[in-house]
């Protein structure tokens, strides 16, 4: 059975933490097509989290096409989850990021500065998408 965890201090909303964990588990193959996610009640009790929050996470995963809820049976991982990327794309994105990291380190940025820059760029991109 898939086990969730919640980091209260991460600053990431709990429902997003659940969404990320499922997304990542599917991407890395820890969750396979046909696997059943734990029931909302089970997650609520196991990690001490609001059932509405779990329901919200499952709804979002469903909208993303990653899972399908079957009434009375549970929520299952889809055959071809829409959010998975091909291994080739994954590798190429990782290479690109590694190359960028190399340039940033050469420019003298330490890990903290890297993180700050990355987060700033990410937020910028998000805001531009919204606008």
């Amino acid at each position: 059975m898939f086990v969730f965890r919640i980091d209260s201090r991460s600053g990431v909303p709990p429902y997003l933490q659940l969404v990320h964990q499922v997304r990542q588990a599917v991407l890395l193959g820890f969750l396979k097509p046909g696997d059943r996610l734990p029931l909302i009640r089970e997650v609520s009790e196991a990690v001490a989290i609001n059932p509405n929050t779990v329901a919200k996470a499952y709804r979002q995963l469903e909208q993303e096409g990653l899972v399908t809820g079957r009434p009375g049976q549970g929520t299952f991982v889809n055959e071809t989850p829409a959010a998975t990327i091909s291994p080739a794309t994954y590798t190429s994105l990782q290479r690109g990021l590694e190359a960028w990291l190399g340039r940033a380190r050469a420019a003298g940025l330490d890990e903290q500065a890297l993180n700050a820059l990355f987060t700033a760029a990410l937020n910028q991109a998000k805001n531009e998408n919204i606008a």
């Binding site: 909302i40 009640r41 609520s44 009790e45 990690v47 001490a48 989290i49 609001n50 059932p51």
Partner: peptide, 14 residues
């Protein structure tokens, strides 16, 4: 605290 919250959330879900 965690056990208390688990019991409470389980009851809310049920």
């Amino acid at each position: 605290r965690l056990e208390f919250l688990q019991a409470l959330m389980g009851a809310v879900a049920a």
